[in-house]
C-alpha cells in the first residue's frame, strides 16, 4: 500500500486514486476526478466506501467548490511541481469555501515545497516518486514563523510581534 504524509505522520494510503475518464470504479474508498464525479453522480452515491474528488490546480474551482465542501477528501493535482496554481486553489477551498476535510497535494510535488503547501491549507502530501518520507517530513517545519496570513496562521506577523 502506498504511503503518504498526513498531519505530519507517515500513514498507509487507504484511498484508491482513479485516473480521469473512468467508466467503472473499484470497490473501497476512492478518489475520483471531478468530471467523473459529476457524470457518475448517481452511481457514486451508491458506492460502497467513501468518495473523494481530485482535480488539477488550474481548475476554475469557483464553479464547483461549494458542492465539494462536505466531502471527506479533496486532492489537488500538480501536473508540474513548478505550476503554482494549486497553492491558490487550496487557499480558496479552505479560506473562501470553508473546506474542513483532508486536503491532499498529489502529483509532481517535491519535498522542498512542503512548508509552503501546508501554509496554503494542505494537510496531506502524496509524492509520485518513492522518496524517504522520514526525511521529507522535516521540510514541513523548515521555518518556525512567517510574515503572511495563510491557512496555518490567520494573523499576520505584524499583529503578533
Amino acid at each position: 500500500m502506498a504511503q503518504l504524509l498526513k498531519d505530519t505522520q507517515i500513514i498507509d494510503d487507504q484511498w484508491i486514486r482513479v485516473p480521469a475518464d473512468a467508466e467503472v470504479f473499484p470497490a473501497g474508498d476512492i478518489l475520483v476526478h471531478y468530471n467523473d464525479w459529476q457524470t457518475h453522480q448517481d452511481e457514486l452515491n451508491q458506492h460502497q466506501g467513501a468518495v473523494g474528488v481530485w482535480f488539477d490546480g488550474n481548475e476554475e474551482i469557483e464553479a464547483f467548490a461549494e458542492s465539494l465542501v462536505s466531502l471527506p477528501l479533496i486532492a489537488i493535482n500538480f501536473p508540474k511541481f513548478v505550476d503554482g496554481r494549486g497553492f491558490s486553489a487550496a487557499r480558496l477551498l479552505r479560506e473562501r469555501y470553508g473546506f474542513k476535510g483532508e486536503l491532499r497535494a498529489v502529483g509532481q510535488i517535491i519535498r522542498d515545497q512542503l512548508f509552503l503547501l501546508q501554509r496554503c491549507g494542505f494537510n496531506a502530501f502524496q509524492f509520485e516518486d518513492n522518496i524517504d518520507l522520514d526525511q521529507a517530513v522535516k521540510s514541513l517545519t523548515d521555518f518556525s514563523d512567517s510574515y503572511q496570513v495563510a491557512v496555518d496562521q490567520p494573523q499576520p506577523l505584524f499583529k503578533r510581534r
Partner: peptide, 14 residues
C-alpha cells in the same frame, strides 16, 4: 518586502 518574502502562495508564479 516582508509580505513578499516566502509568500506561501506565490513562490511558483508563471
Amino acid at each position: 518586502r516582508q509580505w513578499s518574502t516566502l509568500h506561501p502562495e506565490f513562490a511558483f508564479l508563471p
